[in-house]
């Protein structure tokens, strides 16, 4: 294997890593911290992607001159829309089911089916694609044999920024402190004067907003269809469980490992077999480390 091939494979792995990380960050908060199984998380990503698509169409018709910056507007709108939806979802459904995780799973699965059909009926039953922004076209030609697509580089940067922001919010702000307090010990947090139900709703909305960011950025790489979310959801859950829930760093590391594996397996096997063997490998690893690879050693 030449150096060029090696470098390109490593870059593909890095790109898959950042995609998985973006997907998993929201779920790491909703599932990892709050313990809510939101099977509609994938559909929230699709929702973010559709918001981005809508923004693109709007800019194309009304402000073609500003097409170069629509991605940022789409990104922010996607965050706002999905987090508002997440807030409504928490207030309307999830909060009644906090003590019944398996029931939450089924109810949100039902919600995901409804959302899929809404996408299919009111947006498009076919896959939609957003126009590529001019500065994301093409690739960065590092050397003769190494070309790094700008769109993938953009997602890498975006993922790193998002992860840094999430880290900062969770560990450096008062709100983050409240979130961690409530998820670690709800009763004590309540006794200390924190409005736990409010924190729950905001945390959930924040996690959903991250799903929106992930979805909106994926439109740079792939088209969006009604069942897009369903294709993401298993991988996303696997990343979070593999890394060990309750650990943000674990989620990121597991996204890195799975991303690299995916890239190397796909190089040697067919795409579908690569996915299947990674899922199988994760199940085997979970057998040896039931709490995930990077779980904190806590006695409970």
């Amino acid at each position: 294997m030449t150096f060029d091939v090696f470098a390109m494979q490593a870059f593909t792995g890095l790109s898959i890593f950042t995609i998985l990380m973006l997907m998993a960050l929201g779920l790491a908060i909703v599932f990892g911290l709050m313990g809510v199984i939101n099977m509609a998380h994938g559909e929230l990503m699709a929702m973010g992607a559709y918001v981005n698509f809508g923004t693109a169409v709007f800019f194309q018709t009304y402000a073609p001159g500003l097409m170069d910056i629509y991605v940022f507007v789409g990104l922010i709108l996607a965050f706002i829309v999905t987090s508002l939806f997440g807030y409504a979802l928490e207030r309307g459904l999830i909060r009644f089911l906090y003590r019944r995780p398996l029931d939450t799973l089924l109810a949100t699965w039902g919600l995901s089916l409804v959302l899929q059909q809404i996408f299919r009926q009111f947006i498009s039953s076919k896959e939609v694609e957003v126009p590529t922004v001019s500065w994301l076209k093409g690739a960065w030609q590092v050397t003769e044999g190494i070309a790094l697509p700008w769109s993938r580089l953009y997602i890498i940067v975006l993922a790193i920024v998002t992860a840094a922001v999430v880290y900062a919010i969770l560990f450096k702000t008062r709100s983050g402190l409240r979130i961690r307090a409530v998820t670690q010990n709800r009763v004590m947090a309540g006794a200390a004067g924190i409005n736990t139900t409010k924190v729950d709703a905001y945390t959930f909305a924040f996690g959903c907003g991250l799903a929106g960011i992930a979805g909106s950025s994926f439109t740079m790489l792939a088209s969006t269809g009604p069942t897009t979310g369903q294709q993401y959801i298993v991988d996303t859950f696997i990343v979070v469980v593999f890394g060990g829930v309750e650990s943000l760093l674990g989620t990121i590391s597991s996204a890195f490992i799975i991303g690299q594996m995916q890239s190397w397996f796909e190089f040697n096997l067919s795409g579908s077999m690569a996915r299947a063997s990674i899922l199988l490998l994760v199940i085997v690893v979970l057998y040896f480390r039931p709490n995930g690879l990077f779980a904190a050693k806590v006695r409970r």
């Binding site: 313990g35 199984i37 995780p101 398996l102 799973l105 298993v234 859950f237 696997i238 469980v241 067919s270 795409g271 579908s272 077999m273 996915r275 299947a276 899922l279 199988l280 994760v282 199940i283 979970l286 057998y287 039931p290």
Partner: peptide, 27 residues
């Protein structure tokens, strides 16, 4: 036996059915 239970087991079974359909379609 490893006390993987509840939600985690659900996700493992979910992954299993994903694996099976991927393999069947791929091969």
């Amino acid at each position: 036996r490893k006390r993987v239970g509840g939600v985690y087991f659900s996700i493992i079974t979910l992954a299993l059915s994903a694996i099976m359909s991927i393999v069947i379609i791929g091969q």
